[in-house]
């Protein structure tokens, strides 16, 4: 083989091998640059004041960089979304995997795929024009821009993740389990409830976790419908402010190199760490299922 040819092969293979590491490098760079900017906040603030401080007044004098209200805001919205999306999502997955006739199954699966495709900002917009006024009139509150509105919208944004991963888990339950149950005279529902669901439990846990990870990181829709009040959350029918919305809303107004600027990167670190932990744990659950 000509030497020139070998060289060309070697060159391309080197490129391919290097690209293989692209995802590792990307994750590494993201974390590095968040740390690079975010940690500068702690030249003037303590970690305790940042995580547990109750006052988020980044541009007052003196400023307050306590993100506890934002953490609680994210927590409240996420909790609400989880309460709505977990039962609905798992039920939908069970219906698709175990009950639906093939045609309905295809329709539902495409529907879930479409739901995943709708941009966050469009769902936020629809939230503003439908869900928010509905909450205001139904629950008789001064504004519909509340934690509940965020939970409601986010529940549906988590749904595609929950449904598709839970469905995978249900799907991979060995057929022989079901046949065993039928042989003992169980109905289809008894089989699902007593055999299939427990067997798929670990994958379903992973589905729920990834769904929650999605909710914690969601930005635009939640920023548009939750009212963005950075005080300590008072309840589900009050305006709140999440971690993501804070970054998105305030970054445009910060001065580069100010504590405010650094504090938003520090929030980025918190978000990165949360979603990283969620994804790693979910991965453990998915792998336990495969064994």
């Amino acid at each position: 083989m000509p030497v020139r040819y070998k060289l060309k092969e070697f060159l391309f293979e080197t490129i391919i091998r290097a690209s293989g590491l692209a995802s590792i490098i990307a994750v590494g760079l993201i974390f590095f640059f968040l740390l690079k900017e975010g940690t500068l906040l702690f030249q003037t603030q303590t970690l305790g004041d940042f995580l547990l401080g109750k006052k988020w007044y980044p541009i007052s004098e003196p400023p307050g960089f306590g993100i506890l209200p934002l953490i609680l805001g994210s927590l409240l919205v996420t909790l609400g979304a989880a309460i709505i999306s977990i039962p609905l999502g798992i039920a939908c997955a069970v219906y698709i995997a175990e009950v639906a006739p093939p045609r309905i199954k295809e329709i539902l699966k495409s529907g879930v795929e479409l739901l995943a495709a709708i941009p966050s900002v469009v769902l936020g917009f629809i939230g503003i024009v439908t869900v928010v006024p509905w909450i205001k009139s139904t629950f008789d509150v001064p504004t519909g821009l509340t934690a509940f509105a965020g939970s409601f919208i986010l529940a549906f944004m988590a749904m595609p993740t929950v449904v598709s991963i839970a469905e995978d888990a249900l799907h991979s339950v060995p057929k022989i389990y079901k046949e065993g149950a039928y042989a003992l005279g169980a109905t289809q529902w008894q089989t699902i409830y007593r055999v299939v669901l427990p067997a798929a439990a670990s994958g379903i846990v992973a589905a729920v976790m990834l769904g929650i990870g999605r909710v914690v990181g969601e930005t635009m829709a939640v920023m548009m419908v939750t009212g963005n009040s950075a005080s300590m959350p008072k309840g589900i029918f009050y305006p709140v402010r999440t971690l993501t919305a804070t970054v998105a809303a305030e970054m445009g107004e910060t001065v580069q190199g100010s504590d405010h600027y650094f504090s938003l990167f520090a929030i980025g670190i918190v978000l990165f760490v949360i979603t990283f932990a969620v994804n790693m744990t979910a991965d453990v659950f998915i792998h336990r299922r495969r064994k």
Binding site: I30, E37, G213, G217, T244, V247, A248, G268, L271, T275
Partner: peptide, 15 residues
């Protein structure tokens, strides 16, 4: 890859 897919979109913005 799993983690990159899970990074919040606003964090990509910061990055």
């Amino acid at each position: 890859i799993v983690n990159l897919a899970g990074v919040p979109s606003v964090v990509f913005g910061l990055f």
